[in-house]
Amino acid sequence: MAPSNKKHATEKACVIPGGFTVLSLQFSSDSVAQHSLYVKEHKVRTEKSSYRPLDRTLFVLNVPPYCSESVVKDLFSRFGRITSVELRDHPGSSEDSGPKLSKIFRPVSKQGFKVGYIVFESPSSIGAAKSHPHDDPLVVSTEQRPVETGIQKWIHQYTKSFIHPDKLQLTVDSFMQDYDRRKEEEAERQRQEAEKQQEDEEGWVKVTRGHKGTKARPHSEAANQRTLQREGRKNKRKELMNFYTWQHRNTQKEHIAELRKKFEEDKQRIALMRAQRKFKPY
């Protein structure tokens, strides 16, 4: 892809402090300006997931919005065969979010600049990417592989947004079946645990910690708070408010203090308004 005659001009890769290599990227061959991609091998101490094997994953920053996963895959396959590409809004560990949703129900992702995790088949590809010269830009949209943007893309998106009701119904049904099954399993497990807590023939109860969320009594923040409030009210009822002389005197004092406070507040408000020339009627 890279023309060989250009190769000898400045064949040096641009590496900045911090270990990132700067690759330049332009949309098409006649673009005048270039974005910089910052690539580095993926190296995180706590990373345990098998999605991003440490030695074969390339970490890419600043992927422009028009580069979808397949485009990125095409762009980087010049450095070696690629197993997977993952694009995300922010760098971070991949989280596992519940049951797998069908594409239709997945929330729409933001179309901004992304970070990418590219997993190559062989570790050597990372070196190739990291030593790629700066002045040989990657080209996003070429004759063979045009990338749709603008009106074309929006019309395409619009067309893709249609889902046949039957297909939609099918997705919903399968999800709900799955959901019901999970619910049932959950119920089954709870039943079993409840059973476990019952006395056996000899009158013993086996005490276990149990699974999360299996407590019998309502166990929520709101319930806790309600209990606290009830306690507080009980205490208050026991107290007599207007019994002693000093209590009465204090009420009067409070009243004067309240008046004073209001007066002061008003005065301050006026001072503020005056400072803003709010009293000039015209």
Partner: peptide, 27 residues
């Protein structure tokens, strides 16, 4: 990026952004 010694600073890449304005809104 702009590299001065060991310090790396970043500034918006305005030329590329203007190019992106054109690319994203093609047509």
């Amino acid at each position: 990026v702009k590299v001065t010694g060991e310090e790396v600073k970043t500034v918006p890449n305005v030329e590329a952004i203007l190019e992106d304005f054109r690319v994203i809104g093609k047509g």
